[in-house]
Amino acid sequence: NKFNKEMRNAYWEIALLPNLNNQQKRAFIRSLYDDPSQSANLLAEAKKLNDAQA
Score class of each variant (00 low, 15 high):
residue 31 S to H: 11
residue 33 Y to R: 04
residue 54 A to G: 07
residue 8 R to Y: 13
residue 38 Q to G: 08
residue 8 R to Q: 10
residue 8 R to M: 14
residue 43 L to C: 04
residue 25 K to S: 01
residue 4 N to P: 10
residue 9 N to F: 12
residue 30 R to M: 10
residue 51 D to N: 12
residue 21 N to Q: 11
residue 41 N to V: 07
residue 39 S to E: 02
residue 16 L to C: 07
residue 51 D to T: 09
residue 14 I to Y: 01
residue 40 A to C: 04
residue 48 K to H: 11
residue 42 L to N: 03
residue 9 N to D: 10
residue 30 R to P: 00
residue 4 N to F: 12
residue 33 Y to C: 04
residue 8 R to K: 05
residue 28 F to L: 06
residue 33 Y to L: 09
residue 51 D to V: 12
residue 42 L to C: 02
residue 45 E to Q: 12
residue 53 Q to I: 11
residue 40 A to L: 11
residue 1 N to G: 05
residue 38 Q to L: 08
residue 11 Y to W: 04
residue 31 S to F: 14
residue 42 L to Y: 07
residue 1 N to Q: 06
residue 51 D to G: 11
residue 4 N to L: 08
residue 48 K to Y: 10
residue 29 I to L: 11
residue 45 E to F: 14
residue 36 P to T: 04
residue 33 Y to N: 03
residue 44 A to H: 12
residue 19 N to W: 08
residue 46 A to S: 07
residue 9 N to M: 15
residue 48 K to N: 13
residue 13 E to K: 15
residue 54 A to M: 12
residue 53 Q to A: 12
residue 21 N to E: 09
residue 29 I to R: 06
residue 15 A to D: 03
residue 38 Q to D: 09
residue 46 A to Y: 03
residue 6 E to S: 03
residue 27 A to K: 08
residue 41 N to R: 11
residue 29 I to V: 13
residue 1 N to S: 02
residue 34 D to G: 12
residue 10 A to K: 05
residue 30 R to F: 14
residue 54 A to K: 04
residue 18 P to D: 07
residue 11 Y to A: 12
residue 1 N to M: 03
residue 39 S to Q: 07
residue 4 N to I: 04
residue 51 D to Y: 14
residue 35 D to C: 06
residue 7 M to T: 05
residue 31 S to W: 12
residue 53 Q to E: 07
residue 27 A to T: 12
residue 18 P to Y: 09
residue 49 L to V: 09
residue 48 K to A: 10
residue 8 R to A: 13
residue 21 N to S: 10
residue 52 A to M: 13
residue 51 D to I: 12
residue 42 L to R: 07
residue 17 L to M: 12
residue 5 K to H: 04
residue 32 L to H: 01
residue 39 S to N: 07
residue 53 Q to S: 11
residue 34 D to V: 15
residue 39 S to Y: 14
residue 24 Q to S: 04
residue 29 I to K: 06
residue 41 N to D: 07
residue 3 F to T: 13
residue 10 A to W: 06
residue 16 L to D: 09
residue 41 N to M: 14
residue 16 L to F: 11
residue 4 N to G: 07
residue 10 A to T: 10
residue 13 E to Q: 07
residue 47 K to G: 04
residue 10 A to D: 01
residue 51 D to W: 13
residue 45 E to M: 13
residue 26 R to Q: 03
residue 4 N to Y: 12
residue 26 R to A: 06
residue 52 A to K: 09
residue 10 A to R: 05
residue 49 L to I: 10
residue 39 S to V: 11
residue 35 D to H: 13
residue 29 I to A: 07
residue 27 A to P: 02
residue 37 S to A: 11
residue 13 E to W: 15
residue 17 L to Q: 04
residue 45 E to H: 09
residue 51 D to E: 10
residue 13 E to T: 14
residue 38 Q to H: 09
residue 28 F to E: 00
residue 18 P to G: 07
residue 52 A to S: 07
residue 53 Q to R: 03
residue 31 S to G: 07
residue 3 F to A: 07
residue 50 N to I: 01
residue 22 N to S: 13
residue 38 Q to S: 08
residue 24 Q to N: 02
residue 35 D to T: 13
residue 54 A to R: 02
residue 36 P to V: 07
residue 21 N to P: 04
residue 24 Q to I: 06
residue 18 P to M: 10
residue 7 M to A: 09
residue 35 D to V: 10
residue 13 E to D: 05
residue 20 L to V: 05
residue 42 L to E: 01
residue 18 P to T: 10
residue 45 E to A: 09
residue 41 N to C: 03
residue 4 N to D: 14
residue 27 A to R: 10
residue 50 N to T: 01
residue 1 N to V: 07
residue 53 Q to K: 05
residue 1 N to K: 06
residue 31 S to D: 04
residue 31 S to Y: 08
residue 19 N to D: 04
residue 22 N to E: 12
residue 39 S to F: 10
residue 8 R to W: 15
residue 20 L to S: 00
residue 42 L to P: 01
residue 49 L to M: 11
residue 33 Y to I: 07
residue 3 F to Q: 09
residue 51 D to A: 14
residue 48 K to C: 02
residue 48 K to M: 11
residue 37 S to T: 11
residue 8 R to V: 06
residue 4 N to V: 04
residue 11 Y to F: 10
residue 10 A to M: 07
residue 30 R to V: 05
residue 21 N to H: 09
residue 30 R to D: 02
residue 11 Y to P: 01
residue 53 Q to M: 12
residue 7 M to D: 02
residue 47 K to S: 05
residue 17 L to A: 09
residue 29 I to S: 03
residue 23 Q to L: 10
residue 10 A to H: 03
residue 35 D to K: 13
residue 42 L to G: 01
residue 17 L to W: 03
residue 35 D to Y: 08
residue 46 A to L: 01
residue 22 N to F: 15
residue 34 D to K: 12
residue 40 A to N: 07
residue 38 Q to C: 04
residue 11 Y to D: 01
residue 47 K to L: 08
residue 47 K to P: 00
residue 40 A to M: 13
residue 9 N to K: 15
residue 42 L to M: 08
residue 42 L to D: 01
residue 51 D to R: 14
residue 43 L to F: 03
residue 43 L to Y: 04
residue 36 P to A: 06
residue 22 N to I: 08
residue 35 D to A: 12
residue 34 D to Q: 09
residue 43 L to D: 00
residue 49 L to D: 02
residue 11 Y to I: 14
residue 28 F to R: 01
residue 12 W to K: 14
residue 44 A to T: 09
residue 13 E to A: 15
residue 9 N to V: 14
residue 28 F to I: 03
residue 48 K to T: 09
residue 41 N to P: 11
residue 3 F to L: 13
residue 11 Y to C: 08
residue 42 L to A: 05
residue 47 K to V: 05
residue 33 Y to K: 04
residue 29 I to D: 00
residue 38 Q to P: 02
residue 54 A to S: 10
residue 48 K to D: 06
residue 13 E to L: 15
residue 11 Y to G: 04
residue 46 A to M: 01
residue 9 N to P: 02
residue 6 E to N: 05
residue 38 Q to I: 07
residue 19 N to Q: 05
residue 15 A to T: 15
residue 2 K to L: 08
residue 45 E to W: 15
residue 11 Y to L: 15
residue 14 I to A: 00
residue 23 Q to I: 14
residue 12 W to R: 15
residue 44 A to M: 13
residue 28 F to Y: 10
residue 21 N to T: 11
residue 44 A to S: 12
residue 30 R to A: 05
residue 8 R to T: 09
residue 27 A to W: 15
residue 12 W to T: 10
residue 47 K to M: 05
residue 1 N to T: 07
residue 25 K to E: 00
residue 35 D to W: 08
residue 32 L to Q: 01
residue 26 R to P: 00
residue 7 M to R: 02
residue 44 A to R: 10
residue 29 I to C: 03
residue 37 S to Y: 12
residue 46 A to I: 02
residue 28 F to N: 00
residue 15 A to E: 05
residue 46 A to Q: 00
residue 2 K to I: 13
residue 18 P to F: 06
residue 30 R to S: 05
residue 29 I to P: 00
residue 35 D to M: 13
residue 20 L to A: 00
residue 44 A to C: 04
residue 44 A to F: 12
residue 12 W to V: 09
residue 23 Q to P: 07
residue 50 N to Q: 03
residue 14 I to L: 10
residue 15 A to M: 14
residue 16 L to Y: 15
residue 30 R to E: 02
residue 41 N to W: 14
residue 52 A to G: 13
residue 15 A to C: 05
residue 25 K to D: 00
residue 24 Q to G: 01
residue 44 A to V: 13
residue 47 K to E: 02
residue 29 I to F: 15
residue 47 K to Y: 13
residue 5 K to I: 03
residue 30 R to K: 05
residue 25 K to R: 12
residue 10 A to Q: 02
residue 4 N to C: 10
residue 5 K to L: 02
residue 42 L to H: 05
residue 46 A to V: 03
residue 18 P to H: 10
residue 26 R to L: 09
residue 23 Q to G: 12
residue 45 E to P: 00
residue 24 Q to W: 03
residue 19 N to V: 03
residue 32 L to D: 00
residue 48 K to V: 06
residue 35 D to I: 10
residue 47 K to F: 10
residue 31 S to N: 10
residue 25 K to P: 00
residue 49 L to H: 05
residue 27 A to G: 06
residue 38 Q to N: 11
residue 51 D to C: 07
residue 41 N to S: 11
residue 28 F to W: 03
residue 43 L to V: 14
residue 7 M to V: 09
residue 7 M to G: 02
residue 33 Y to D: 02
residue 51 D to F: 12
residue 35 D to R: 13
residue 7 M to Q: 10
residue 10 A to S: 05
residue 28 F to G: 00
residue 10 A to Y: 06
residue 12 W to I: 07
residue 1 N to I: 06
residue 32 L to N: 00
residue 26 R to G: 05
residue 19 N to M: 12
residue 3 F to G: 10
residue 1 N to D: 13
residue 33 Y to F: 13
residue 52 A to W: 12
residue 14 I to F: 04
residue 6 E to M: 08
residue 26 R to H: 04
residue 14 I to P: 00
residue 4 N to R: 03
residue 49 L to N: 02
